[in-house]
Simulated assay, not measured.
Amino acid sequence: MKKLIIATGMLFMAATGCKKYEMPGNTPTTNPILENMIRGADVSWITEMEAAGLKFYDTTGKATDGFQLMKDINMNAIRLRVWVNPAKGYNNTADVVAKAARAHKLGMQLLIDFHYSDTWADPGHQTTPAAWANQDIAGLQTSVYDHTKSVLTALKDKGIIPVWVQVGNETNNGMLWPLGKASDHMDNFALLINAGYKAVKEIDANIKVIVHISNGFDNGLFRWMFDGLTENKANFDIIGMSLYPSTNEWQTPNQQCEVNMKDMISRYNKEIMLCEVGMPASSPVATNYFIRDLYTRLHNLPDGKGLGIFYWEPQAYNRWENYGLGAFDATGRPTFAMDAFR
């Protein structure tokens, strides 16, 4: 997701509000489609934001704990990224466990997102952790296994068992480059996934393992990746996607994403999760429509294999870290975009 933090200003300069949409006058307060769906948020920045003095408020202006606010918005799941040895400490094991404990106390389900890096991992960046830099593929398999097992054990020791675990983040071309770069070494990438998978299942066989790539509208990319992983006997339970359309063009990517999701189910018989979505914070009405439309498409997938959606860092406001795709306004309150989860 780091690519979008850098490029938001350039990519979405044209997203100037909600001119194309009117605020619905009779929007229902509840949506029955959502009842059995994952309604999630990745809030991995939250401890860093709190340390910087930022606060969060409900729609009445009452200061509210960020996790409680997500619960009040009708979120039922939290996603947290994990870095190996991050420079500032945030997203390391201790920080992840502390955030997970807050979500767990509120009865929220948990998705743990392993980046297998000391910093951002995304389609353009899959940098091997410094401590693993000189390892061969066998050593990297051991490191992936040990790191995954260590973090999940720390959670288990607190009585916390995630429902889902991502083995890699937006791995459009594999992870742990260069040895795990899929276009050069699809077999190695499959070995690394299987190392993470093994560690996850040893913690709890019921945890579902996700392979996550971005551009959920790009069926060619998904076929290439999951054909390759299947041929190399990679083990996973769920296909994860990201989707970040522009304000005025979300309908076509949503339609393309639905076609892709149906194809993934037909080809691989896997469940589907939208692990990351987002649109400009300046366009809450369009974002609301975008999310509601996605939920309808997920609901209509064959055999109930559409699991739900995680909004990426909705609580990031005032362009925190130059990110402009949150779903809170400049006062730290959730916008109408978040009503799509009610």
Rank of each mutant, 00 (worst) to 15 (best):
K201S: 06
Q255A: 06
M338C: 14
K158A: 06
N206D: 05
P334Q: 13
N206Q: 09
Y311I: 06
T296S: 05
D72K: 03
A337T: 01
G174N: 13
K270N: 07
G159S: 09
D122H: 07
L155W: 05
K158I: 03
W83F: 06
I73Y: 10
N300Y: 15
D72G: 11
K156S: 07
I161W: 10
Y57S: 02
Q315I: 14
T59G: 14
I73S: 04
I161A: 08
S117L: 07
G228I: 10
A330N: 15
I33C: 15
N85W: 15
F290N: 00
P32R: 09
Y57I: 07
I38D: 01
G9W: 03
T59M: 14
I265T: 11
P129E: 01
E231I: 11
A63E: 11
W250E: 00
L298C: 07
D72Q: 13
K158L: 07
F67G: 03
R292Q: 11
H185I: 12
D157Q: 11
P280Y: 00
R342D: 03
M338Q: 10
D72S: 05
Y268G: 12
G180I: 00
D339K: 15
F336H: 09
M225R: 11
N248K: 13
S150N: 12
A121W: 02
I193N: 05
P253V: 00
P245G: 04
K19C: 14
D227F: 11
T252Q: 02
G40L: 01
V209I: 03
L192C: 04
A131K: 08
P123E: 07
Y295R: 02
A52K: 12
Y21D: 04
T230S: 08
A316D: 06
L34S: 04
T252H: 10
G9M: 06
I5D: 06
S246N: 07
V167T: 02
Q68I: 14
V209E: 02
N91S: 15
T30G: 08
V277S: 00
I193D: 03
L243G: 00
F189H: 12
L155M: 05
D122Q: 12
L34I: 03
F341N: 01
I33E: 08
M273H: 08
T60W: 14
A327Y: 09
W120K: 00
A14N: 13
A133Y: 05
P123M: 05
N172W: 02
N173S: 04
H147E: 13
G174R: 14
G89V: 03
L111A: 02
Q68G: 13
F290G: 02
T230Q: 08
G332Y: 06
N318F: 08
A130V: 13
T148I: 04
G89D: 00
H299E: 02
W132P: 01
K105L: 03
E231M: 12
D72V: 11
N215A: 07
K208R: 11
G278H: 00
I213H: 08
A281L: 11
D146W: 10
K55H: 14
W250D: 00
Y289Q: 13
I160A: 10
